[in-house]
């Protein structure tokens, strides 16, 4: 990884979303403003809310859940992914105004919509499972993660929850080290509009001739209906977003996987309609 590339990975890590956590909509002054890292998870915020908001002080962390505009927020998704989903999947959404206004609830947990038992231990376990799943896709086994010392495994999560990029990278670079292991599939998940189920499938880093694939090639492999072969002349009616950035379909997939993945080593890619008269930056 060159210095320039490293800077990009670090900038992605440093991305934050200003959030206004509202406990009582009738009394908006009872709100807490926090800048939350895009890679972080809502259960990591819960203890801060319980400490600082009087109405929540008697609440069990497991009973707390979050809602935006009538939609319970999946606590096991990274915050940046949640934000991109709600802002990109519904154009003209007020969510495009910052801070992002999230309602906090401490009763009537929507068990049919959200996974139960949000908590720091649960999300830590889920994060470790995700990073193993990504390792399995990339290398065909979870050896890279399992060969880490217990201390290094713990450091991965600890670095994430304490916002230390270098501590995370120092361990994660061993997981992403491909020496001696053939690369298998790109760890990637696709999110589409209209409550489409999440799409995950195998796609190689290289084609049959051994040439590196682009993001567009990979999307074509996974969702053949999305892109016409070789058609670069007509503007597609969709954009591809991650970390709030519209990505070029020509982005080399290996580079994207190494620099634009979330700390679980998955590329979380949103495919959505372009925002009319978009002013958002693109890479």
């Amino acid at each position: 990884m060159t210095d320039k590339d490293r800077e990009i990975a670090r900038a992605i890590w440093n991305g934050k979303i200003p959030i206004q956590f509202i406990v009582d909509p009738a009394n908006p002054r009872d709100a807490l403003f926090i800048e939350v890292p895009r890679y972080s998870f809502l259960p990591l915020i819960t203890p801060q809310l319980i400490t600082h908001v009087d109405q929540l002080q008697a609440s069990e962390p497991h009973s707390i859940w979050y809602e935006y505009d009538g939609e319970p927020l999946k606590w096991h998704y990274p915050v940046g992914l949640l934000y991109d989903i709600v802002t990109r999947m519904r154009p003209n959404s007020a969510a495009q105004q910052l801070p992002w206004r999230i309602l906090v609830h401490n009763e009537n947990f929507p068990e049919t919509v959200l996974l139960r038992n949000p908590g720091i231990e649960t999300i830590q376990d889920m994060y470790m499972s995700m990073i193993k799943e990504a390792d399995f896709l990339r290398h065909g086994s979870t050896k890279k993660v399992m060969n880490l010392s217990k201390q290094d495994q713990t450091q991965l999560w600890h670095a994430l929850s304490t916002e230390r990029y270098d501590d995370h990278w120092n361990v994660n670079q061993h997981i992403l080290d491909d020496r001696g292991v053939p690369l298998r599939s790109v760890p990637i998940r696709l999110y589409l509009p209209n409550q489409c189920p999440v799409i995950q499938d195998t796609a190689s880093f290289t084609n049959d001739e051994g040439n590196l694939m682009t993001l567009g090639d990979v999307l074509k492999t996974i969702v053949p209906g999305l892109i016409v072969t070789g058609d670069t002349t007509t503007a597609p009616d969709f954009v591809v977003v991650s970390h709030g950035i519209e990505l070029s379909l020509h982005t080399p997939i290996r580079w994207a996987s190494d620099h634009l993945s979330y700390p679980d080593n998955f590329l979380h890619i949103i495919i959505c309609r372009p925002i009319p008269s978009s002013s958002s930056p693109s890479l």
């Binding site: 589409l192 209209n194 489409c196 189920p197 969702v223 209906g225 999305l226 016409v228 597609p236």
Partner: peptide, 20 residues
């Protein structure tokens, strides 16, 4: 949505309906 076929590009809405 099976691999190996290359259907014509669909609009995003049509595609999502198929996937759903």
């Amino acid at each position: 949505v099976e691999h190996g076929k290359t259907p014509p590009a669909q609009s995003l809405d049509e595609l999502v309906n198929t996937l759903k």
